[in-house]
């Protein structure tokens, strides 16, 4: 709705929007600021906004106390591994549904979506039991599998909607020229599909990184990712705001940056194409 407006009105809009935006962003800003304070400054009254002694000590303490790097590494492996595994399984499925549709394609897509609606708590004990019996409790591979499965429907759906946008005539032309199925996928489809696949990977890394039901219930000290690392701060212990802030900042920073790149995909991925 690009309409010409007076600059007075534009100024009012700008002020209003920035005000609201800053209020919404404030908790994150406050967390980042507090992470650079001493514990004393963190609870000071009146609150200190920018004029305090900036320090990095909290980051050192957090790393020393609970071995942040190990949790970070677990998060990277679990989020990255589950996403890549999911994409490897989903690409062929989405490809065949987009380019060789049958009468049942729509039903299969809808059914896949329905598995996503299954409330996790409803199958908590069976999964927990299977994890114990297969020795998967508190292992990274176990979480990679579970998070891959809960995100697989979203991955298939996103890839499907992207593949759908690739014109089928190009594939037919390649076929006419004698390309085999393998060549068709490798040399024609893949280059055109890469942006879609990249967006899908991005969004699913974010979802897996922030997943906090299975990661909290199926891990302990060994395979816990950052969600579990932060949860260990839920019992207060003296002055700990600055340390909590440092830990939180480290846990959300990587994904905030990825998130800013994936605003558009967010809508497509989370509404299953229902809003474009």
């Amino acid at each position: 709705m690009a309409r010409s407006v007076t600059s007075r009105r534009k100024s009012i809009n700008t002020a209003l929007a920035w005000g609201v935006g800053l209020i919404i962003f404030f908790p994150i800003l406050w967390t980042i600021l507090t992470s650079f304070k001493t514990e004393g400054d963190a609870i000071a009254y009146p609150p200190k906004f920018f004029f305090f002694d900036w320090t990095l000590e909290n980051y050192a303490i957090v790393q020393e106390r609970s071995n942040y790097m190990r949790y970070l590494w677990n998060s990277v492996i679990i989020a990255g591994g589950s996403t890549l595994l999911g994409v490897v399984i989903a690409v062929p499925a989405a490809w065949s549904m987009a380019f060789v549709p049958s009468k049942r394609t729509k039903d299969i897509l809808m059914w896949m979506l329905s598995t996503k609606m299954l409330p996790a708590v409803g199958v908590l004990y069976p999964i927990y039991l299977m994890f114990i019996q297969l020795g998967l409790l508190d292992t990274r591979i176990g979480l990679v599998i579970v998070l891959m499965l809960i995100n697989l429907p979203i991955i298939v759906w996103m890839l499907y909607t992207y593949f759908k946008e690739i014109p089928g005539e190009i594939l037919e032309a390649a076929r006419m020229d004698g390309a085999t199925l393998k060549e068709e996928i490798l040399y024609v489809l893949t280059p055109m599909a890469i942006p879609g696949i990249a967006s899908t990977i991005l969004l699913n890394i974010i979802l897996a990184w922030n997943e906090a039901f299975w990661t909290l219930n199926l891990t302990a000290a060994k395979a816990g990712p950052l969600t579990a690392f932060i949860a260990s701060y839920s019992s207060p212990e003296g002055l700990f705001y600055a340390k909590l802030s440092a830990a939180s900042t480290m846990a959300i920073a990587p994904i905030l940056i990825l998130g800013w790149f994936s605003q558009k995909q967010l809508v497509r991925g989370l509404t299953f194409g229902a809003v474009k």
């Binding site: 609201v20 935006g21 919404i24 962003f25 908790p27 994150i28 406050w30 967390t31 974010i206 990184w209 922030n210 906090a212 909290l216 950052l226 969600t227 579990a228 932060i230 949860a231 701060y233 839920s234 909590l244 802030s245 939180s248 846990a251 959300i252 994904i255 905030l256 990825l258 998130g259 800013w260 605003q263 967010l266």
Partner: peptide, 15 residues
């Protein structure tokens, strides 16, 4: 405005 969506639930809860 979008940023809070990317904050993991345990962080937003505790903060």
């Amino acid at each position: 405005v979008i940023a809070p969506f990317f904050v993991m639930p345990t962080v937003s809860g505790l903060v």
